[in-house]
């Protein structure tokens, strides 16, 4: 329980802002659309400036703490720096800025490197805003809805969504269980920390075996409980929470189209 209560799943930040209240389908499709626009328009500072401003505006409206949003960039820091460095040293357009032994740095390389980095940052920001303002359940519903048309080509939309729900439901339970088993084995003198790689991998067995056995037992019992409650796949199933578009979604889409149009105009017409 102790560790669990600190983990916020899918890093969802509950709130009542306009962005939070949007239909999850709107948010999911918009995040997707945003990424499409990002890749279609020509890379340029004005274009990315427009999109970046829009992103900041959304973050502001959603009342998300900027620090938390930026923390989402941490995992891609290495990719970011690699992108910048590789482009700086490999692109040879523009004027020669300076020479470092055999490496030559051109202005075009610097420009290119930072532009691509900006694109990556915008890409990650759009998905962070999505997960921070949309509860995992709402997101699952949206994914199920969006995938539904692909059912005809054999994509099990309902089953995927159900799997996601169950995973979300059981992650905290299993983490709690792992913690408990770990303590029980520590009490029997187990040592999870010292020794070489092989020894350490082996020392994990007393943790992993009971965890797997318990996960399988849980899966078994859950399947039985679901069947006992008449679960038989997605056919004929009704919904407790029905997704509904509101006026808000209409306004949001209007803004989205306007911003995209502006970006395209700057990109191609100017």
């Amino acid at each position: 329980m102790s560790m669990m209560q600190q983990i916020t799943l899918g890093q969802y930040l509950p709130g009542k802002s306009v962005v939070h209240r949007l239909d999850p389908r709107t948010k999911l499709l918009m995040a997707f659309g945003f990424i499409m626009v990002l890749f279609i328009i020509t890379a340029g500072w004005v274009e990315y400036g427009i999109l970046g401003l829009a992103a900041l505006l959304i973050i502001y409206t959603a009342k998300l703490p900027l620090g938390m949003v930026l923390r989402g960039l941490r995992p891609i820091l290495i990719i970011l720096s690699l992108t910048i460095v590789l482009h700086i040293f490999s692109t040879r357009t523009g004027t020669l800025l300076f020479r470092l032994w055999f490496l030559e740095v051109y202005s075009g390389g610097v420009n290119q490197g930072f532009l691509l980095a900006a694109r990556l940052v915008l890409l990650v920001l759009s998905t962070s805003v999505l997960t921070l303002t949309t509860s995992p359940i709402a997101l699952t519903d949206a994914i199920e809805f969006v995938l539904k048309p692909f059912k005809r080509i054999g994509l099990p939309a309902h089953e995927l969504a159900m799997m996601m729900t169950i995973a979300l439901r059981f992650i905290p339970t299993l983490i709690e269980e792992a913690e408990r088993i770990m303590k029980a084995q520590l009490a029997r003198g187990a040592d999870f920390e010292s020794g070489g790689l092989i020894k350490r991998a082996k020392s994990l067995l007393p943790l992993l075996v009971p965890l797997f056995i318990s996960a399988f037992r849980r899966a078994d019992e859950l399947a039985m409980a679901m069947e006992a409650r008449c679960y038989r796949g997605g056919d004929g199933r009704t919904k407790f929470k029905v997704l509904r578009y509101t006026k808000l979604d209409f306004y949001a889409w209007t803004c989205f189209v306007a911003v995209s149009a502006l970006a395209f105009y700057v990109s191609y017409a100017l």
Partner: peptide
């Protein structure tokens, strides 16, 4: 020695003997 609640969920070895031996081995 501490025996946790529902202690059977900590068993992991292939045989009873190997499981009981885990503590003294450590």
């Amino acid at each position: 020695g501490l025996v946790f609640q529902f202690a059977e969920y900590q068993l992991f070895a292939e045989t009873v003997a190997a499981d009981v031996a885990f503590g003294p081995e450590n």
